[in-house]
Simulated scan of single mutants.
Amino acid sequence: MSTTALHVRKDHLATTHLHTTEDGPLAAGQVRVRIDAFALTSNNITYAAFGEAMSYWQFFPTGEDGWGSIPVWGFGSVTQSLHPGVAVGERLYGYWPMASSVVLQPDRLSAERFTDAAAHRAGLPAVYNQYFRSASDALYTADTEDIQALLRPLFITSWLIDDFLQDNAFFGAKTMLLSSASSKTAYGTAFQLAQREGIEVVGLTSAPNRAFCESLGCYDRVLAYDELDGLAADTPCVYIDFAGSGALRHAVHTRFTDLKYSASIGGTHVEQLAAGGAGKHTPGPRATLFFAPAQIKKRTAEWGGPEFGRRMVAAWHAFIAKVTKPEAPWLRAEHHDGAAAVEAAYAAVLAGKGDPRTGHILSLAKGKPTV
């Protein structure tokens, strides 16, 4: 058997190639997982853009100098196991390379999850090293795997952004400005913020995506990027930047004289992210990168793990009920199977093209799992 992976140039994300290696024997305690399907969103492009700065390239080293494997979220099935606690056929949700299979070293097993104890991941954020066992996963439902792959990691970030803002009393502002308002992480955040009494949620988006954002019902108002003057310049506000556009950040910081806080989440404008962005010398507060694992660590310490999980699961189910409402779904999955289709889908997502209602589900595995 062999494993096929999509590798990208770390210094030029548009350059890709497929890399195939023969599968070697497992060591004691290891399992091989077939990666059945994974989501590809602008969030994954952010991982690549910050690959060096935030160690995302280290999760799945390629062994090829200058080339990286972008981490993605999705589902896999155990096809081989030399670990007594993990059975062949088990379904897992977690963090994968863009590949057809991967070898894990399960450790710290519970009924709900385990950790990959591979030595090269030991110093990386623990939240990315956990694999959830679908049979006991409180967020899992078999009929929503596509939606889970697409939205689960993004919504957890959205939920944590909302919690972080509330935890800081919204920095004394009542108006939240969200760029790239049509993106999944942005509208997940807006969904949470809309439930906060007295908070105005303003979406900033490109003109073609304005109607989509308005249709969601979680923004109090939606402005095109060239309509910042639709808000009074002295409005006390917080900027939550999902776009990563230096030019937009500069415009927002310049326009709003009472900007209380500027949060950088990631970015859909990868060409600016990869270059470090423009707008470094902007007026107002310094843009601060939001790092979700830090808020997870803080809240887990304050609330305890079980309570953290209970709150997050409740929020997730409420969000999914809204997103998948049959009469007006926010998202539909589009599948891309096979090497050529995966490469094409990656190029489209990297370029920021497509309908915001479409979510991309990819697979490099051949056929269905045989376990």
Rank of each mutant, 00 (worst) to 15 (best):
C213R: 14
A328L: 10
P125N: 10
P97K: 00
K280M: 09
G266W: 08
T282K: 11
G338F: 10
M98D: 04
I240Y: 13
L204F: 11
I70E: 12
S245E: 08
V86Q: 01
A49C: 15
Y261K: 11
R133M: 03
Q295W: 05
A186P: 11
A27L: 13
A117Y: 09
A348L: 03
T41Y: 13
L231V: 04
A190D: 08
F60A: 06
S110I: 09
A321R: 13
H335R: 15
V252Q: 06
G279T: 10
L350P: 02
H120G: 05
G74V: 00
K184R: 14
Q192I: 00
Q105C: 06
Q295G: 03
F50D: 03
R113K: 06
D143Y: 08
D220S: 11
Q195T: 07
D226F: 04
T268Y: 09
A315L: 03
L178W: 11
G94L: 01
E112K: 05
A314N: 08
S77D: 07
T20G: 04
L289S: 06
R249G: 15
E307C: 05
E197A: 14
S101M: 01
E22T: 14
T268S: 15
S215C: 12
S101T: 03
T370C: 10
V127R: 05
P61W: 13
V270S: 13
K325F: 10
I147A: 15
P326H: 09
F50Y: 15
A292K: 05
P125T: 04
P61R: 11
R221F: 08
D146R: 07
L273M: 15
V78A: 03
A263P: 09
G354N: 02
Q166C: 12
I147T: 14
G198E: 04
E200H: 10
G172Y: 08
T21R: 08
G68V: 15
L223Y: 11
E307T: 07
L18N: 06
V103P: 09
V102S: 03
S262M: 07
V201D: 08
L150F: 08
T16Q: 13
R32D: 05
R310S: 11
G74P: 03
L18Y: 09
A118V: 01
P236W: 05
F132W: 09
P306F: 12
F242R: 02
R152Q: 05
S182H: 13
F319L: 11
H317I: 00
L151A: 12
W330K: 07
K174D: 15
V78N: 04
T144H: 13
S77Y: 02
V31R: 01
A315W: 07
E343P: 07
L216M: 15
R91C: 00
A99N: 04
F242I: 01
I296M: 13
L104N: 03
P293T: 03
A321F: 05
S183Y: 09
E90T: 15
S2G: 04
L150E: 09
T16Y: 01
L104Q: 02
S262A: 15
G359Q: 11
H7F: 13
Y140C: 00
M176C: 07
T3V: 12
T21M: 04
V88R: 10
D163G: 09
L26W: 10
Q30G: 03
K10M: 13
K280R: 15
P84H: 01
P153L: 06
V313C: 06
V202Q: 00
I156V: 12
H317F: 06
A345C: 15
A233T: 12
L92R: 01
R310M: 07
P369W: 04
S77V: 14
A117K: 12
L248P: 02
